[in-house]
Amino acid sequence: KDVEPGPGEHALQYTYCFWFSRKPTGRNQQSTSFEKNMKIIGTFRSVEQFWQIYSHMIRANELTGHSDVHVFKGGIKPLWEDKANRLGGKWIVRLRKGLVARCWENLILAMLGEQFMVGDEVCGAVVSIRFQEDIISIWNRSANENQVTSRIRDTLCRVLNLPPNTIMEYKTHNESLKDRSSF
């Protein structure tokens, strides 16, 4: 869906979509593919449109079960197989319970505000709620561009203001495809 910034609103560099997915439980588990299980919550092109959607969403720390919220640029699906992601990868940050809401907000604000300074490389960001820990990740197009991935890591460290012992790892989507696991 095409959206434009409203009159007097602050345009963003890109259009973005919010997606939501939750791992199906019980008998639905096998019949529902990951893609079918993902729903677009909203599309935005301005700072104001972003807040309108975000303010109505459940905060990341209040999400339950095995759920993920994705914010991706318009035209890019949050799937490894998407053309924009095929050669890409992601930085993964594992967070102990209690930190996710603040870190997730800081991550998306940095992305929307173009703080990463890596051109068109960033594809989107994901927050993944799990039982023991929460995980945030940021996806980029080219897993083999070391300069790009280092810059993303450095910006992540700065904007998230993470505790010093936080574990960060980079995983290519190709590896994820091979082991069929996100993390």
Binding site: G8, V47, E48, G113, E114, Q115
Partner: peptide, 21 residues
Amino acid sequence: GTRIIYDRSFLLKCRSSPMAN
């Protein structure tokens, strides 16, 4: 080309008073 850059505090200000910026 030119990129539209916003810092965190500006984005947060837009949340609290969208038309005041």
